[in-house]
Write a protein that binds this DNA or RNA. Structure first.
Length: 258
DNA sequence: AGAAATGTTCGGCA
DNA sequence: GTGCCGAACATTTC
């Protein structure tokens, strides 16, 4: 689930439900998700404090805490963030409890995410070798990033140190809508193709955020709702193909993507 | 039963 | 140094 659009939706959810409320209780049910911070230290930094603002960098969600420092959430392959009111949910890993039974719950089905603490958000991002956020890039920067790059375009889009936020699903979507095969070599894309790729990247990410990163709400013309074995291209009806890149599966249309 | 699944990191190789 | 691959991480789902 959690690539840039999903994490942006989580961020909106956090903003809408959890800012400015005093944190009364902190519950950690899955300690192995904690990265570089002990449960006790995390609790001490959060309890009695408030989340005052949020920030997203690539697939990371950071929340500034009133007493200083940042709560950092990364969702791995199967995490999400829910605003709850009293009722319980499964796969719960981490919960902030506010007054009146309201709470913010981090879940991670496969438990591959991370919960950490940063004294300084910018420093945290530097340490994790994160490139500029995909939606913060200008066309000029995007072109510059690809200029010196060898290898496949899909790898470049997914390289978090080059640009942050795009994963397996949305790189497929962007390449589908831009009409470019995932294995296409970066150096074979001309100026026009790079320009198109940039604008497609932005429109795909923004559209996904508008539709709450929910595949069922995305336009049928998107690849995402059809992303399964044996499915057909929503544009031309041809059977979609798959290819493996570093253990990940790419879906693409052999007719529309060159 | 076995494979695959939206992420990151690390070691090895060209 | 760069890019690519597979493995590992942990768990659920088909």
């Amino acid at each position: 689930m959690p690539e840039l659009p999903d994490v942006e939706v989580f961020r909106h959810r956090l903003d809408a439900t959890s800012l400015s409320k005093v944190i009364r209780k902190v519950t950690v049910t899955c300690g192995r998700l904690l990265d570089g911070v002990s449960e006790r230290a995390l609790r001490a930094r959060l309890r009695g404090q408030r989340l005052i603002r949020s920030r997203r960098e690539g697939k990371y969600l950071l929340a500034a805490v009133s007493g200083g420092g940042w709560l950092v959430l990364h969702f791995g392959m199967s995490g999400d963030l829910l605003a709850i009111h009293g009722h319980d949910v499964s796969y719960r890993c981490f919960r902030l409890e506010f007054a009146n039974g309201a709470g913010l719950v981090y879940r991670s089905r496969r438990k591959l995410g991370h919960i950490s603490w940063a004294e300084d958000a910018d420093e945290f991002i530097r340490c994790h070798q994160l490139g500029p956020d995909a939606l913060a890039l200008t066309e000029m920067q995007f072109r510059k990033l690809l200029e010196g790059r060898r290898g496949q375009i899909k790898s470049a889009l997914m390289d978090q140190s080059l640009m942050a936020g795009i994963g397996n699903i949305y790189s497929d979507e962007i390449l589908f809508q831009a009409g470019v095969q995932p294995k296409r070599d970066v150096k074979d894309l001309n100026g026009r193709a790079v320009k198109k790729l940039f604008h497609t990247m932005r429109s795909v990410l923004k559209s996904a955020i508008r539709h709450e990163a929910n595949p069922e709400r995305l336009p049928n013309s998107f690849l995402l709702p059809h992303r399964e074995r044996g499915a057909s291209c929503p544009r031309c009806g041809v059977r979609l193909k798959t290819a493996k890149t570093a253990g990940r599966t790419s879906y693409f249309c052999p007719q529309d993507q060159k």
